[in-house]
């Protein structure tokens, strides 16, 4: 059954369609938001830029406009949202920068993690599960600090690789490896956040 959707629903539907078509991977999210294509970005400024852009493109501003102009504005708004989603996330941002540099990104293109690295990640994950089970908040915090520090170090290397000019081959390779490591760190830190949230919920009256 087809129900005529509201304007907001149209945005959501269009976004899904574009995303599933992989259309978004073709755009340059930095260009869309008028930002330099670098890794180290001031996220507060990025957020402000996105908010301003969204305001100027809001459907309410185009009520009296023609159909094609309305469609164009809607497309731009969708693009801005997608660009913001990419740029605000360190992993997605690094992926976008790698793509812009001509490197393959995604499943099958990722470097294989070294056994020693995987062993370390496994030990962290086991220690975190143990800390969760024994409700050891101090242990969770210690692990989060250690892995958080590693994530920061990876991000620093990515920041040095992507400064606005095309990275050389060695920098690109290093960036791919750091991005792969960063995914494991971020996954771990997401788990920490989930545990802390669950504990907070339990503690709430």
């Amino acid at each position: 059954m087809w129900v005529r959707p509201f304007v907001h629903d149209v945005t959501a539907v269009t976004e899904r369609v574009f995303t599933s078509l992989g259309w978004v991977t073709a755009m340059n999210p930095f260009e869309v938001l008028g930002l330099p294509a670098v890794f180290a970005l001031d996220l507060k400024a990025v957020e402000k830029r996105h908010r301003e852009l969204s305001r100027t493109l809001h459907p309410d501003k185009f009520v009296g406009a023609g159909a094609s102009e309305r469609r164009h504005a809607l497309g731009k708004a969708v693009e801005a949202n997608e660009a913001f989603r990419v740029v605000r996330d360190p992993v997605a941002r690094a992926e976008a920068l790698l793509r812009l540099a001509g490197a393959a990104v995604g499943e099958g293109a990722e470097p294989t993690a070294a056994p020693e690295f995987l062993m370390e990640v496994m030990e962290w994950r086991e220690a975190l599960a143990e800390a969760r089970a024994t409700r050891d908040g101090a242990a969770v915090a210690t692990l989060a600090r250690e892995v958080g520090g590693r994530a920061q170090a990876s991000e620093a290397i990515l920041a040095a690789a992507f400064v606005g000019r095309a990275p050389d081959r060695a920098q690109l390779e290093l960036a791919r490896i750091q991005l792969a490591a960063l995914r494991f760190y971020r996954r771990f830190l997401e788990e920490v956040a989930a545990i802390e949230e669950a504990w907070q919920d339990e503690a709430a009256p």
Partner: peptide, 13 residues
């Protein structure tokens, strides 16, 4: 056998 999923950061032993 210790393997990791580079796309999502999960690990399996």
């Amino acid at each position: 056998g210790l393997v990791g999923a580079p796309a999502c950061g999960d690990v399996m032993r």
